[in-house]
């Protein structure tokens, strides 16, 4: 069974351009979502991690709670927003990749934001004071904090990517799993399993696992100092 699954996975990779298309779509959709989450979440995380204001604790708690948000609920929320009868229905974004990106962004953001805040918070205050003492301005202090906390920030991105690329409920709901358009690996797996094609589902699962392994290995091998901070 396992051997059969493996050989099926390999032959699918070798022979079926549709599979490659699905894989590529998964990567692009989830990658875009995580990157957008990074573009929003990292600056916001810096702001939250470095500043002290009334209600900050409540905000951080809220963000951390967001990490536990079930994907289907996020999907439902984004669906209701983008539905033709919803407030953003006129944009016609339901059942598009943009909608999937939006849903995954909502899922990835608490991860990126929450872990970034934790990372920034773990940078000793004295170190940041030292940077100020050497003449750093606000922005430079923030960049230094990011540099010091980058291991955790990278972890935040990897964790976010891991969450969204493996998620099925939300993308199924807002993407519709349209073949050749919005079908991604997880929804394809879901469909195959539903049809009883367990081995095909497993094969796709193996591909997903391989991609995750490759991504994690790549992240681990990224030498400190080669990151854009």
């Amino acid at each position: 069974m396992i051997r059969e699954t493996f050989s099926q996975a390999l032959s699918m990779l070798a022979g079926d351009p549709q599979v490659w298309e699905i894989i590529l779509r998964s990567l692009v959709v989830s990658g875009t979502a995580v990157l957008s989450a990074a573009l929003v979440g990292i600056p916001l995380g810096l702001l939250l991690g470095l500043s002290r204001f009334r209600g900050r604790g409540a905000v951080v708690t809220l963000v951390n709670t967001g990490m536990a948000l079930p994907p289907v609920v996020v999907g439902l929320f984004v669906y209701l927003l983008l539905s033709r009868s919803g407030p953003l229905g006129s944009l016609g974004l339901l059942y598009t990749k943009q909608a999937m990106v939006a849903a995954q962004l909502v899922m990835a953001l608490p991860f990126v934001l929450g872990i970034t805040v934790t990372g920034i918070g773990s940078v000793p205050r004295e170190l940041l004071m030292q940077a100020r003492s050497l003449g750093a301005g606000r922005l430079q202090v923030a960049l230094l904090a990011l540099r010091e906390a980058r291991a955790l920030v990278m972890l935040a991105l990897v964790a976010g990517m891991g969450r969204v690329i493996a998620e099925v409920g939300a993308v199924m709901m807002v993407g519709g799993n349209f073949r050749g358009e919005t079908q991604v690996m997880t929804t394809a797996i879901m469909e195959e399993v539903r049809k009883g094609n367990y081995s095909l589902g497993l094969a796709l699962g193996l591909i997903l696992l391989t991609i995750a392994l490759a991504a994690n290995t790549l992240m681990m091998r990224l030498k400190p100092g080669r990151l854009p901070v």
């Binding site: 000793p124 004295e126 170190l127 004071m129 030292q130 940077a131 003492s133 050497l134 003449g135 230094l144 540099r147 010091e148």
Partner: peptide, 10 residues
């Protein structure tokens, strides 16, 4: 410029 109690190297 300042030097603190702990070296605080980046």
């Amino acid at each position: 410029a300042g030097v603190f109690q702990h070296p605080c190297l980046f």
